[in-house]
Design a protein around this nucleic acid. Structure first.
Length: 399
DNA sequence: CATAGTGTTTACCTGTT
DNA sequence: AACAGGTAAACACTATG
């Protein structure tokens, strides 16, 4: 298996692990070596990593992946963002990520002197709400431990996931980052702060991926990749393998439409050369494209440039189109009340705000986001299905 | 300071209901 | 006619070099 596909498998595995998490305190665990003393523990949102070696690298997954703890694909996370090392009886951290890192809320810039870590602390990667709780398991009174010097790669174990919670509810309230999302486009606070809190965003992300999958021309659940990039960088994707399990509810919710045949063929297929599709405008409104982009993001939020990146990555048409479509994207973001602007916190550099979907509408919008609408001038037996903020249309017969 | 990116708003158009 | 969506454009603000 190539490293790439292995990486994708890991992502799928992690994704499924997320799925299994809500009702159960059980977290996905892995450890690079079966032997040796566990000297520390790293706890992500839905996983635990048992540290048995003296030095570990935490960073972004990539094809060049040389990290011990893979933090996914966020472009805000560097490939070797953090290095933790153990010198009895303490752990130290060096930040090599260009965006720095917050340690218990204190910003550590790239290249800062090594920082002695407290017994427990929380890392947060700037411009994301990706957090990692570190806990040293070494007692100062202990004699020096016999731990591995060289970090071993941490291949994820075989996929064995049970999904214990088939009643996951996609429409359950989505907690806002601040606990409040009041008026559209007026959220005053930073989006940060979802640590340790399971929310439907993970389900929705799966849903988005699944909806994209079933949007295929034959309703076949394909293996799909959904971008999670949140910058210009087009790295970052979450893969949901079509063979993964999905609850019955989810299957119903994202059942493929068997109605009017899609006007064009499957846009979620990897870009094909010479099939003519690259010149065809996707059958989705700009609002749908925005929902697709935001829903695919790991944090359920994207910057404007992240939205652009998602669209150009998934819809080659927009790679060559002039800039007018970007104006339209901005227009849609401002105009539609279900797109919520969430300012960056002050200590986070960068342009623009993050955009989220109104949690009350999120599930519905995502469900609709992958429905092809009739393109202008293309006759069809059925009425077109556009995205409507009022959801007033009756679309029963699409099922 | 210049520039580019971002965000808001208005206006107008086309196609659909 | 009303509405949804697309397009263009003016303008203000802000991050960045």
């Amino acid at each position: 298996m190539s490293s790439h596909s292995q990486s994708q498998e890991s992502d799928a595995w992690a994704l499924l692990a997320l799925k299994s998490a809500p009702a159960s305190p059980t977290k996905l665990q892995w450890s690079p070596e079966s032997k040796g003393t566990v000297i520390a523990r790293l706890e992500g949102r839905e996983f635990e990593y048992m540290v048995r070696q003296k030095r570990i690298i935490i960073g972004r997954n990539s094809s060049r992946g040389e990290v011990d703890v893979n933090m996914g694909h966020s472009s805000f996370i560097s490939r070797k963002h953090l290095e933790l090392f153990f010198e009895h009886p303490n752990f130290y951290m060096v930040c090599n990520g260009k965006n720095g890192v917050f340690v218990d809320g204190v910003f550590q810039r790239k290249g800062a002197p090594q920082l002695q870590l407290p017994k427990t602390c929380t890392f947060r990667f700037p411009s994301t709400n990706i957090r990692l709780v570190f806990q040293s398991l070494v007692d100062e009174a202990d004699p020096p431990l016999n731990v591995a010097n060289k970090s071993a790669r941490a291949p994820l174990p075989p996929l064995r996931i049970n999904i214990p919670d088939p009643d996951s509810n996609f429409t359950s309230p989505f907690p806002s980052p601040t606990g409040t999302i009041s008026a559209a486009n007026s959220c005053p606070a930073s989006p940060r702060g979802g640590h340790g809190r399971r929310n439907v965003s993970v389900d929705l992300q799966m849903a988005a991926a699944y909806a994209a999958a079933v949007a295929g021309p034959h309703g076949v659940i394909n293996t799909v990749t959904v971008s999670t990039s949140n910058s210009h960088d087009d790295r970052g994707e979450v893969l949901l393998d079509g063979s993964s399990q999905m609850s019955e509810n989810e299957s119903k919710l994202f059942r493929p439409s068997n109605g009017c045949p899609p006007p064009i063929s499957e846009p979620y297929s990897p870009p094909k050369r010479g099939d003519g599709q690259e010149d065809t405008k996707p059958p989705y409104s700009y609002a749908q494209l925005i929902v697709q982009a935001v829903a695919s993001a790991q944090d359920k939020q994207l910057t404007l440039s992240g939205i652009y990146s998602y669209i150009t990555k998934n819809y080659p048409y927009y790679r060559t189109a002039d800039k007018g479509w970007q104006n339209s994207i901005r227009h849609n973001l401002s105009l539609n009340r279900y797109f919520i602007k969430v300012p960056r916190s002050q200590e986070e550099p960068g342009k623009g705000s993050f955009w989220r979907i109104d949690p009350q509408s999120e599930a519905k919008l995502i469900e609709q986001a992958f429905r092809r609408r009739r393109q202008r001038g293309v006759p069809c037996f059925r009425v077109p299905f556009g995205l409507s903020s009022s959801f007033r249309r009756d679309y029963q017969d699409w099922y």
